[in-house]
Write a protein that binds this DNA or RNA. Structure first.
Length: 548
RNA sequence: GUCCUCGUAGCUCAGUUGGAUAGAGCAUGCGCCUUCUAAGCGCACGGUCGAAGGUUCGAAUCCUUUCGAGGACGCCA
């Protein structure tokens, strides 16, 4: 992955063996890049971690390790012991710069690793009901979920991106009735959207389209008769809108699974039969219950209501069983915070089916508060007042919105300042990174005709080496961010990469006729940085403009 | 009432899973464009990590208590 750090770890491992005749795993060795530059290019706390095992003080251990360490194969120029027992490594500069040629060779593949090799993973995200516009909470889930799948792929996982369409429950009835009311209103017929229906403006638009296509044909049939029509048309229109909006947001899925199809394929009956067979259910008060309390839930849950229909949970269990049957090693769901109480239930069901609970990981996407004019902008289903994803994209741009959501950890409650997101200024950090990329491209345009060096022996300026070190980290950051499912780590990487580049730019002149050799080598560095920046931005679904 | 997720600089957030003097961005102040994009660079200011105990060489991080914010607790989805 990161050759330099791997070599260091190996060297430390060997040194431990040589000095103390004990074996430690390379995974146990922690290498980090110190914040303080005087603490070296890399450092390790390995000596401190060995104190308990060896019963010696950390500095003593550290000096023994330094003695035993093979500096040559690890490309270490100099070693220092500092603080309570840190070992600080100062690397040979040509070793740091060697990453440039690697990047130039790998191009858009730079950053790939085999961290997730052979692991089949299914990631479900957004899965918003097809009954209305996507709101900022969905946008956050979409940005994070999509970025995570991109990173997982880069880290070598075999990934399926999946959307579960809830097209079978009561909410579709409500949506159909609401749409019907909007349609009738347009036809001049007295009608009202049900109190518990959907009051958003999107249904008015859909009703207008239907009026255009069908005239007032459905105003004269009985309500009950035409309801099916409105349900189907509404569903079709909402689903199309959903897909269009997500496409605008640069978010795609491999598989769309509808709740109806789960019923139609007999998966619900099969899942229920399996649960009954496993002895995980009982009948009471005319309903069928699942013993979720056996797996930590605070009460048992109804699978089949006394009227014979199923609760929301049951097809969802069947759906998850179907995913497991498809042979994934790992299932991941991203849920909105308002569904977090549901996790225990679902995981209990997984166990009731005979699978280990950790087959399914559920990550919570916290709600985002919308701030407008310095005040919270309340969303209301009743009034249909909401900020739609589409509006956000229109006002701020998909790049800015995606970056904003991806740059904060999913589990924190956050504020989304609409006015700030609209501003195309440096208050929005996505421009900082994109500007760095545009600058790199500009330099390369300036240098047209000058060939890019395949040597890096002149790369020795501190700013150059900082940049190289950062480029070196990329694949490891991708793998880590993918594993933790935390795209904000990628955003941090992007920001610091931009920072290192801007800082380099300010001090190092790249295109310089007086100094053609250095120029050619710096061009190689800039090209490598450009490739890495583009790859990194792509992982969070943000474009890398060549001009700004 | 029970449970979940949080609480870090004026604001928005990081903090590599227990490590060096807790970091960024924005905002504020001061420098820097005859030089490859100033959407930039450099410097400064800014903190009782909500509070109190505990665990140990060492705590923003782990444990207990407590205060505050948001959410979940349906034969709704």
């Amino acid at each position: 992955m990161n050759q330099i750090e791997n070599k260091l770890k190996q060297a430390i491992q060997e040194a431990v063996q040589k000095a103390f005749a004990i074996t430690i795993e390379t995974e146990e060795i922690n290498i980090e890049i110190p914040k303080e530059k005087s603490h070296g290019d890399y450092s390790t706390n390995a000596a401190m971690r060995l104190t308990k095992q060896l019963k010696k003080n950390p500095r003593e251990i550290a000096s023994a390790l330094c003695e035993a360490l093979d500096k040559e194969t690890a490309s270490v120029e100099r070693i220092e012991i500092a603080g309570p027992g840190f070992i600080n490594f100062f690397m040979k500069s040509d070793r740091l710069a060697s990453v440039i040629q690697t990047i130039l060779k790998e191009q858009e593949n730079y950053g790939k690793s085999d961290a997730g090799k052979g692991i089949r993973i299914n990631v479900e995200y957004v899965s918003a009901n097809p009954t209305g516009d996507l709101h900022p909470g969905h946008a956050r889930g979409a940005a994070i979920g999509d970025s995570v799948t991109r990173m997982l792929k880069m880290a070598g996982y075999e990934v399926t991106r999946e959307y579960y369409v809830n097209d079978a429950g009561n909410q579709i009835d409500k949506m159909g009735k609401s749409l019907q009311a909007r349609y009738l209103q347009l036809c001049g017929v007295e009608a009202e959207v049900p109190e518990d229906g959907y009051h958003g403006p999107d249904l008015i638009e859909i009703a207008k389209e239907l009026k255009k296509a069908y005239g007032d044909r459905y105003a004269h049939t009985s309500k009950a008769e035409s309801l099916a029509f409105f349900k189907e048309e509404g569903l079709k229109a909402e689903l199309k809108k959903l897909k269009d909006d997500l496409a605008l947001f640069n978010v795609e899925f491999d598989v769309w699974t509808s709740e109806r199809s789960v019923y139609q394929r007999g998966l619900v009956e099969r899942a229920v039969a399996t649960l009954i067979q496993q002895g995980m259910t009982y009948e009471s008060e005319g309903a069928l219950w699942l013993k979720t309390t056996e797996f930590g839930d605070d009460k048992d849950r109804v699978l089949r209501k006394s009227d014979g229909s199923y609760t929301y949970l049951t097809p969802d269990i069947a759906y998850h069983l179907d995913k497991l049957d498809r042979g994934y090693d790992q299932l991941v769901d991203f849920f909105g915070a308002d569904h977090h109480g549901y996790i225990v239930r679902l995981k209990a069901a997984i166990q009731a089916l005979g699978y280990p609970s950790d087959k399914l990981d559920v990550d919570i996407i916290q709600m985002a508060r919308m701030i407008k004019d310095g005040e919270e902008f309340k969303l209301s289903k009743r009034s249909g007042k909401a900020v739609a994803l589409r509006d956000l994209i229109e006002e701020a741009g998909a790049d800015a919105v995606r970056y904003f959501f991806a740059s904060r950890a999913a589990d924190t409650q956050m504020d989304f300042d609409i006015d700030m997101a609209k501003k195309q200024t440096n208050e929005n950090p996505v421009y900082y990174a994109q500007y760095a990329h545009a600058r790199m491209c500009s330099i390369l345009r300036q240098a047209e005709g000058i060939s890019i060096a395949d040597q890096t022996n002149l790369i020795a300026h501190p700013k150059e080496l900082e940049l190289c070190k950062h480029l070196n980290e990329f694949a490891a950051v991708v793998a880590d961010a993918a594993k933790c499912r935390q795209p904000h780590k990628m955003c941090n990487y992007i920001r610091t990469l931009a920072q290192d580049f801007h800082s380099f730019y300010a001090e190092c002149k790249v295109v310089d006729k007086e100094n053609p050799e250095l120029s050619a080598q710096r061009l190689a560095l800039v090209t490598a940085a450009k490739i890495t920046m583009k790859n990194a931005l792509n992982l969070i679904g943000v474009s890398a403009p060549e001009k700004m």
